[in-house]
Amino acid sequence: MTIAESSLTLQEQPSTYRTRKLPPSIQLLEEEIFRLREAMERTYDEEDTFQSEIVIEMSRRLDIKINEYMNYYRFKWNSLK
């Protein structure tokens, strides 16, 4: 089974974040980060190295999503000051 085949859709993946009141876009971003991290971990297990191009690319995509998430909170925090 490939990584794409084993990835769950948003409807299949129960959210652990539903108890917090967050904008839907941030909820989706949290779920995407969770799925990307899981996929990267599975890929690492298959490749058995962090030097694999596919693991590196997945890590880059995850970094981008984490930065988007952190920027949301940075903006939110700055607007409260």
Rank of each mutant, 00 (worst) to 15 (best):
D48I: 12
F75Y: 13
F75G: 09
T49H: 04
L36F: 07
L28S: 09
P14W: 01
Q11Y: 13
S15V: 03
L28T: 14
P24M: 05
R37F: 14
E31V: 04
P24S: 09
F34S: 08
Y72Q: 01
T9Y: 06
R60I: 02
S15T: 06
I64Y: 07
F50V: 10
S6T: 13
R42G: 06
I66R: 01
Y72I: 03
E47K: 11
N67F: 03
Y69Q: 00
T49E: 02
Y73M: 05
E30L: 12
L29F: 01
Q27A: 07
T9K: 07
D45Q: 15
Y73Q: 02
P24G: 06
Q27F: 08
Q13V: 09
I3H: 02
A39D: 07
R60V: 03
E41P: 05
E41L: 15
E32G: 06
F50K: 12
Q13G: 03
T16H: 15
E32D: 15
A4P: 01
S59Y: 00
M70E: 14
A39R: 04
Y44W: 13
P23V: 07
A4Y: 11
M58T: 00
T9Q: 05
L22K: 02
F50W: 11
A39V: 08
E5F: 08
F75P: 02
I66A: 00
I33C: 01
V55I: 05
E41A: 11
E53Y: 04
R60S: 06
F34D: 12
R61D: 09
T16N: 14
M58L: 15
I33A: 03
W77D: 06
T2I: 14
Q27D: 11
L28V: 12
I26L: 04
P24R: 04
E30A: 04
F34L: 13
E32K: 07
A39M: 11
T2N: 15
P24D: 14
M40E: 01
V55A: 01
Y73A: 06
F75A: 14
E46Y: 10
M1W: 05
E46I: 10
I64T: 09
E68N: 09
Y72S: 03
E53S: 13
S15W: 03
T9S: 12
I3L: 13
K21L: 11
R35V: 10
E41G: 12
E41C: 11
S52Q: 03
L62H: 01
I66F: 04
A39S: 14
Q13L: 15
E12A: 07
S59E: 01
E12G: 00
R18M: 08
E57Q: 14
E41D: 13
R37V: 06
